[in-house]
Amino acid sequence: MAEVKLSAPLTDKDVESLNIGDKVLITGSILVGRDSAHKRLIDLLDAGKPLPVDLKGQVIYYAGPSPARPGNPVGSAGPTTSGRIDPYAPRLLALGLKGMIGKGSRSAEVIEACKKYKAVYLAAVGGAAALIAKSIKKAEVIAYPELGPEALRWMEVENFPAIVVNDTKGNDLYVEGRSQYQR
């Protein structure tokens, strides 16, 4: 198990070097959005309209933070369950999205898309939202403010901690980890 420092946005080389179980620390700009924001992005694609952001090389964090107290960039900001975004993710991966951060299992389609388009799925520790917030330095709503906690955001992060769950080779940490400790 390696500990890898990553700088976002990511390159093909960055993601291809990652293996399941690797601990990563991400520094840079990441997108933040949940299923409602994803649905809007897919609706734009269906309508043949441009997206509010270029997804090439980007990492998206599945999260809806709690409100920021004055003086803080954000409130608590742990990951949400990724499975709800599964129906939308492969289309965004096809457009060059390189990383997804959330918690919980992904569908076979998403794992296949990670192989096909060279992308990774990372897990942040669900419920460690106060701890994770310490690595978020700036946050800005870029689209869909009416969705409240579900708005699309940019965040500047420094050493944001995550673990590689699905790599570019089709491996799954949830399956491997569980089988190792099953009795």
Partner: peptide
């Protein structure tokens, strides 16, 4: 960190 008052335990309150 949460107990110190600045951040809820989980963002999903």
């Amino acid at each position: 960190i949460s107990r110190e008052g600045q951040f809820p335990l989980c963002q999903d309150t």
